[in-house]
């Protein structure tokens, strides 16, 4: 056999040492793999993954207030309701940055009352600026074709004419958010960015029948802040509405019951679905607002489980009379 001098012959000891090193390297790789392996999978709990939350937008020291004004002219009833609660200055201070969360869910004409009426958006914007607000933004996440929804409802034009900035949802405006104690809103994409640096949040919703929840009013209106595949929440509609109310503690809610959608909600589609109920509800307690709104739909809060659930969660009172609401007529 020829012996090539460039080939070094390993002796038994060297072979064993090298084998041991290779074995140790393999064992280390396996140990590292085992160490990194997470048998439980990612932890979905809020505390570990989302440090983003919405601040409390309620007005300190104001307590629960409510006003119910009856009349056909929604702008006039809104004005009177705000006035009866101490005027807009009670809610908006000089320099406030205000967000109006409207319902622009459908690209349907304002007359069908499936969306927040543009006239009260314009009026509320004007009132806020009149009280010294530094900025007013109007937003919602209508899911389907936001531009058409804001334009065809008349909301975009009304808001812009009054000087508000309209923010249409874009992917980069969403952040993952968890509501503490919530079962459903855990690491869910929420239309968060428009709320950054906002000091006052006002919810503005129409009173509507809803095929799944029985009604869509002030609390359900926050559904429009959710992103992603939110339709899965329809399977547990009462819980999600309660959790939406947990997510947003607003400065004020405005529930427009001038024309209530009595049937075929939440889309409606015909004037036949509407009833002139001639009522404007303004409240700092969104549970109370919804409890009264239910009466406009010929329902009680007992017919709408989410109201009782929200009350039980300490988010407000279903006994709106206990707030001694101002009740006025035009």
């Amino acid at each position: 056999m020829n012996h090539d001098p460039s080939i070094k012959v390993l002796n038994r000891r060297q072979f064993l040492v090298r084998s041991a090193k290779a074995g140790a390297a393999i064992a280390a790789a396996c140990a590292a793999g085992f160490w990194f392996h997470d048998a439980k999978g990612p932890d979905r709990s809020a505390e570990h993954h989302s440090d983003i939350h919405l601040p409390d937008f309620s007005i300190e020291g104001l307590g629960a207030k409510m006003s119910i004004v009856r009349g056909q002219d929604r702008v006039a009833t809104l004005r009177l309701a705000i006035k009866s609660m101490g005027g807009i200055e009670t809610f908006i201070k000089n320099g406030d940055r205000v967000l109006l969360k409207v319902n622009a869910a459908f690209a349907s004409p304002a007359m069908l009352s499936a969306t927040t009426h543009p006239a009260i958006i314009a009026e509320m914007t004007a009132l806020c600026y009149g009280a010294g607000a530094a900025s007013v933004v109007v937003t919602d996440n209508p899911i389907n074709d936001p531009a058409s929804c804001f334009n065809l409802t008349g909301i975009a034009e009304a808001a812009r004419r009054a000087g508000a900035k309209v923010i249409l949802p874009r992917a980069e405006l969403f952040k993952s958010l968890t509501v503490p104690q919530a079962k459903l809103i855990r690491n869910r994409p929420v239309l968060y960015q428009p709320l950054v640096d906002i000091t006052k949040v006002i919810g503005m919703a129409p009173v509507k029948d809803h095929h799944r929840s029985g009604a869509s009013m002030a609390m359900k209106n926050w559904y429009g802040l959710l992103g992603g595949r939110r339709n899965i929440f329809h399977q547990d509609i009462n819980t999600i509405i309660k959790e939406l109310a947990m997510m947003v503690n607003p400065s004020l809610v405005i529930l427009d019951g001038t024309m209530s959608m009595m049937t075929n909600g939440p889309t409606g589609g015909s004037l036949s679905d509407l009833k002139q109920t001639n009522t404007m509800i303004v409240a700092t307690d969104q549970v109370a607002a919804d409890a009264f709104g239910a009466t406009l739909l010929d329902k009680t809060f007992n017919d709408l489980p989410f109201i009782g659930m929200a009350e039980a969660a300490g988010l407000g009172t279903a006994d709106y009379r206990s707030l001694d609401p101002a009740e006025l007529s035009l």
Binding site: R44, H49, I143, P169, A171, S176, R186, G228
Partner: peptide, 17 residues
């Protein structure tokens, strides 16, 4: 950094878009 609740950016908006 993986978070299963964070959807791809496209999914944050609607599929209807």
């Amino acid at each position: 950094r993986y978070n299963p609740a964070l959807l791809p950016k496209d999914a944050l908006l609607s599929t209807a878009a």
